[in-house]
Design a protein around this nucleic acid. Structure first.
Length: 1126
RNA sequence: AGUCUCGUAGCUCAGUUGGUGAGAGCGCUACACUGAUAAUGUAGAGGCCAGCGGUUCAAAUCCGCUCGAGACUACCA
């Protein structure tokens, strides 16, 4: 039932509403019309939810609620991303183990069980948050990525990729920790302390050109020519197979001497880097003669020629360290190629490429068809020159065999004095191939567990050929409505343009296993696309004796019940035991990796429906696909946004979401990222409890656009609670008080708009404009603009203006049409505000709406969330009226301002005010009474400026927009001239519509539209001019006015006493006043007015009043006594 | 290091396709108003629109560079 809160107690009402919703189950009472689909970006339930999760949740929820109001059936399935590294790391920490212990100290089964437990723990936290923040989401059919049905869809998708030849096994250079024996994800590299500044030995080496492959102008130079190349990883030099230059970078060939051997050489390097490389002992000369003067510490160099990088492309050089050669296509190696990775900042402008130990090198060599330095081992399997432990392979000559390539890999005891890098440098120096040896400080990633530097190492992985679909993905991206635009066009677009193949493999445990079985040699493989297929294959295997029994035999093929599906578990611990048989009767074992969790989440549109095993039509008839809307943080651009897009483009030739908001981040008050290490995180539950969910929701949406980062500021949250919700409460409470007195229950016929007072017409016009605007902004995914419009309407228009001016209508009159109109108007305003605000503040608005309608006994409206979004009535919108009211407000402010200047209290009535408005033909007649009452002035007159020309001055200004393009610099001269025009000349423009000017002997004719003419002030009046309005007040106060002023003072004293004694606003009183000359004077003219205002039924003036209350009006002492009339 | 986003009053933010006195709310100070009053009104203080340069008759707005914040990507040799 209706409750009268003394103050708005958000926490209390929130809890009540939560219970109310649960009891009535409104979430399920959805209307059935068009479907609106939102995909839940599965929150990875691998950690407790934080304050930053509230932002996307709020955005998602508000659009769901909005669309529901608009009559859509909103599909919003909850989903949970359950796999992945972070969960595994949590569990490792809890168990005190490392990756290497899994499968040894603890079984994979146990480990995975623990992971599942951890996930479910966080899941409960998430549920709690959803409930507390008012996130309505369908939990009944929620999906979990670890469920068998989900996995089966993923397998089906992968099989499809395989069938289309888009799934392949290859190797990719990945961060690898030899000390831990494991590959690292980029996530792990970014752990605190991952990147460390280290000092590396760097060398500049000389690659000898094969002269006849050089361009003509270089061929003719006498003597050997070398490419100078710089490297921070000398140990990769034996694996060098190419050098790269920048196409448009300027290079020079220089004749000089080797600083170690002092032998004459010709070197090639980037022009800009000459001074850096040839520093210290070198000096520049410009003749061959000077070049001959060489001393030990003074080596001359002479620039022989200059050319662009592209000239060198295709030239060959001699292998620097010829210990090994690539096992295939070696004729394509040792070539100059070009790429844009070359910069002019470091090194020599020529970059050494080792495709086996650099990610960029790898991609580049693939693109340019350069073979990697792989050799065949005993088993004829191609391997790189460094093994998995980080050692040079056995076959390496010159004592390098079996040495760790990084000194840090040795234990402290066994660490040699010379690192491999140094030894290689010395080796090259001995054979005269080094030009320079230096030290270099740079940041390098380290394994977070072993603290040792990582290697970039070729690891076997399964890939999806995403690069093949680059163009399609770019094209389809254009049809997605991104908010903000830049994320889609730039961030996402650029990312797609540089797309590489998607590495699916993860050498971990808790995830969806790759459904790929292979023979040892890798010559036969089978990709499993369904459980049915797997069971059939196992049966074959059992028949042939490869397996003793079928571990999935309890599964009933074709039975889609959850019970059947939950009876089996398709995780690694079970799947690894399965051995299948190939067509040629060879055993096949499963590829041991699991799938990148991003594939899990990108596949959610299909996997959440168990496509294509159940309800195929939902996808194929495009009922549940693509989504109308998704929303996640910008950091998901390369994450979920990409994986969704990639899978749908490649397999379904479609986008997977039509509208997307990529929201910004929630930072702390100072704009710093929230993190546990900084200690600036905020517990979402605490903050919700303290300020209420709606306050937080409103704050996050109103403060700045969702895509902007937000600095979480408690003070502003407090303000929203006070100012917006407080005002709303006040307005509601006001309505309630009087509606109760008058027993207003919305029973009367709706009063026609044209029969309502103009102030009602005005607020209804504003209201309809508001509906129109908010609907538009909601529709365009701009919630911030929605709430700002609502705030402005509630605070400025409804509360501070409409209600203030209408108060007397509720308070004074009998139950007239005017009053009913006021009630009806206020009711519709409130009810509309609640509806259009409910998506953002679901609890508070529900509470208001419920109370408003319960009081009116309109039970058909149980919940604001089941109502319809209001339709705006175009006929009710009157822009002219809105503009006039804005001016009226402005005029009121100006009059108050004048009163202040003249020290005239508002209680003191004034004789008259004059107003001049520049805009012509503006009829303010209807506003007069309203204005008069508000500013307490007896007479207000509006004048057109012409009539008042004797007392006003006209000011003239240049219309730059028109004159600027026409006259250019002359505009400033025109401005000067015009500024000094006489009043007569200004008037001439007004009457003749043009004016001739002489500027620099040039005759210029200005038309009226070329200038702005405005009125400035009135002589002899207290006046103010602003916004094209001039306002003046007559400051003379007659005796009558003075008395009336006193009477208002007296009323004020009486009202204060009434209030002090807690009289009800409807209580009538007997008023006793002690007789005095002053009192007589006041009462003479104003007695009736006074009684009316103070609900005095009888006024008694007594000579000597006992027990009265003293008060002062100016210096006059008065004594009053009030008695309530029973 | 690169890419993207952002930088307007003490704080949070507006500022349309460039058009010329740079705005609002909060906070602060003073005064007023008040039968919805922890509200409201008026006035005051507070800004080289991050900095520098350019385009233009005209720049907070467009372009370039620098500085600062954040995100993403990174052994750029």
């Amino acid at each position: 039932m209706f409750k009268e809160y003394k103050h708005l107690e958000i926490e209390k009402l929130t809890n009540e509403i939560i219970i109310y919703w649960e009891k009535k189950n409104f979430f399920k009472k959805k209307k059935k019309k068009d479907i609106y689909i939102i995909y839940e970006g599965p929150p990875s339930s691998n950690g407790s939810p934080g304050i930053h999760h509230i932002l996307p949740i709020t955005i998602k929820d508000l659009f769901c609620r909005y669309k529901t109001l608009k009559g859509k059936k909103v599909k919003r399935k909850a989903g949970w991303d359950t796999h992945g590294l972070p969960v595994e790391l949590v569990v490792e920490k809890e168990l005190g183990i490392t990756k290497n212990d899994i499968g040894k100290k603890i079984s994979i089964f146990k480990f995975n069980t623990k992971c599942k437990e951890a996930v479910m723990r966080y899941y409960n936290e998430w549920l709690k948050l959803s409930k507390k923040i008012g996130y309505w989401i369908d939990l009944e059919k929620q999906y979990f990525t670890f469920k068998t049905k989900y996995i089966e869809t993923i397998w089906w998708l992968l099989k499809n990729f395989h069938n289309k030849n888009l799934l392949y096994k290859g190797y990719k250079i990945q961060p690898y920790s030899p000390a831990a024996g494991t590959g690292l994800s980029s996530h792990e590299l970014n752990f605190p302390g991952g990147y460390k500044k280290i000092t590396d030995l760097t060398i500049i080496v000389k690659f000898k050109c094969i002269k006849n492959t050089l361009p003509k102008e270089l061929k003719k130079i006498t003597g050997e020519i070398y490419f100078l190349t710089w490297t921070t990883t000398p140990w990769t030099l034996p694996s060098n197979t190419a050098l790269t230059v920048g196409k448009n970078i300027d290079y020079v060939i220089i004749s000089t001497y080797n600083p170690y051997s002092f032998l004459k050489i010709n070197i090639i390097l980037a022009k800009k880097l000459v001074k850096k490389v040839l520093s210290k002992n070198f000096y520049y000369v410009n003749s061959k003669k000077e070049l001959k003067k060489i001393k030990k510490n003074k080596i001359p160099y002479l620039i022989l020629n200059g050319f662009k990088g592209y000239k060198l492309i295709g030239s060959n050089y001699e292998q620097l360290i010829n210990w090994f050669s690539p096992y295939k296509e070696k004729e394509k190696a040792f070539k100059i190629i070009s790429s844009d990775i070359v910069t002019k900042k470091n090194g020599t402008g020529i970059v050494h490429i080792s495709p086996t130990f650099g990610e960029e090198d790898f991609f580049l060599s693939k693109k340019k068809d350069i073979p990697p330095m792989l050799i065949l081992d005993k088993n004829k399997i191609p391997v790189p020159l460094v093994d998995m432990e980080g050692k040079f392979i056995k076959e390496t000559p010159y004592g390098f065999s079996g040495k760790y390539v990084k000194n840090e890999y040795y234990s402290d005891k066994n660490r040699p004095a010379k690192s491999v890098d140094l030894e290689i440098a010395l080796y090259l120096k001995n054979i005269n191939k080094v030009f320079k040896i230096e030290k270099y400080i740079h940041s390098y990633p380290h394994c977070w567990r072993t603290k040792k530097p990582i290697l970039y190492y070729p690891l076997n992985s399964w890939f999806i050929k995403t690069s093949f679909f680059k163009e399609k993905m770019l094209k389809l991206n254009n049809s997605i409505n991104w908010t903000p635009k830049s994320t889609g066009k730039k961030k996402f677009g650029f990312w797609l343009k540089n797309i590489n193949d998607w590495n699916l493999s993860r050498s971990r445990f808790w995830g969806i296993p790759l459904p790929i079985w292979r023979t040892k040699k890798g010559d036969e493989e089978r990709v499993i696309g369904s459980i049915k297929e797997l069971i059939n294959e196992i049966e074959k295997s059992v028949k042939e004796g490869l397996m003793s029994y079928n571990p999935l035999k309890n599964f009933i093929i074709g039975n889609m019940s959850d019970k059947n599906y939950d009876s089996i578990d398709l995780h690694k611990h079970n799947l690894d035991k399965i051995i299948l048989i190939s067509n040629y009767k060879k055993p096949m074992i499963r590829e041991s990796d699991i799938i990148d969790v991003w594939f899990d989440s990108g596949a959610m549109p299909y996997a959440q429906l168990h496509y294509p095993f159940e309800k195929k039509f939902l996808i194929e008839k495009k009922i549940m696909f693509p989504a109308d809307f998704i929303c996640e943080g910008v950091d998901q651009t390369r994450g979920w946004f990409f994986t969704l897009h990639a899978i749908s483009c490649m397999l379904f030739n479609s986008i997977s979401f039509k509208n997307v908001i990529s929201n910004g981040l929630v930072l702390d008050e100072k704009g710093k990222k929230m993190s546990k290490s900084r200690g600036n995180t905020i517990n979402p539950f605490k903050i919700i409890k303290k300020y209420g969910p709606d306050t937080i929701r409103w704050y996050l949406i109103s403060n700045s656009s969702p895509w902007e980062n937000i600095k979480f500021n408690i003070k502003i949250i407090e303000k929203i609670k006070q100012k917006l919700f407080g005002t709303l409460y006040n307005v509601y409470y006001f309505f309630y008080i009087y509606a109760k007195i008058d027993n207003f229950k919305l029973k009367e016929k709706k009063i026609l708009l044209k029969k309502r007072p103009f102030i009602d017409k005005w607020i209804l016009s504003e209201l309809n404009s508001l509906i129109k605007k908010t609907d538009y902004y909601y529709h365009n995914y701009e919630p911030t603009k929605v709430v700002r419009k609502i705030e402005n309407f509630v605070i400025e228009n409804l509360s501070n203006w409409y209600l203030r001016l209408s108060r007397k209508r509720f308070w004074k009159e009998n139950y007239t049409t005017n009053k009913i109109s006021a009630y009806q108007t206020l009711y519709i305003c409130l009810s509309t505000i609640y509806k259009i605000s409910s998506p953002i503040a679901p609890f508070v608005m529900e509470n208001f709406y419920k109370n408003l309608n319960f009081y009116l006994k309109k039970k058909s409206f149980e919940s604001v969330h089941l109502s319809d979004f209001p339709q705006y009535n175009i006929k009710a919108i009157n822009k002219n009226l809105e503009l006039k009211m804005r001016l009226a407000k402005k005029i009121t402010s100006m009059i108050f301002s004048l009163r202040k200047k003249e020290k005239l209290k508002v209680r003191q009535p004034l004789k008259r005010a004059l107003i001049v408005i520049n805009t012509n033909n503006f009829k303010f007649n209807k506003f007069l009474n309203l204005l008069k009452r508000e500013v307490n002035i007896k007479q207000i007159k509006f004048f057109s400026k012409n009539k008042l020309s004797s007392v006003t001055k006209q000011e003239i200004k240049v219309n730059y927009k028109l004159l600027g393009p026409k006259f250019g610099k002359v505009v400033t001269l025109i401005y000067k001239k015009i500024n000094n025009l006489t009043i007569e000349n200004i008037k001439k423009i007004e009457t003749k519509n043009f004016l001739r000017l002489n500027i620099n002997d040039r005759k210029i004719c200005l038309s009226k539209t070329n200038v702005f003419i405005s009125t400035v002030y009135l002589k002899g009046w207290s006046a103010l001019c602003n916004y094209g309005i001039t306002v003046a007040i007559d400051t003379t106060i007659s005796d009558t006015l003075k008395k009336e002023g006193f009477s208002r003072e007296l009323i004020n004293r009486i009202q204060n006493i009434r209030k002090f004694f807690n009289y009800k606003i409807t209580d009538k009183i007997y008023l006793y006043i002690e007789k005095s000359f002053f009192i007589d004077k006041i009462l003479k003219l104003n007695e009736h007015f006074l009684c009316e205002e103070t609900l005095t039924s009888e006024l008694i003036v007594i000579n000597h009043l006992k027990n009265g209350i003293f008060s002062f009006i100016e210096k006059n002492k008065i004594k009053i006594l009030l008695k309530k009339k029973e």
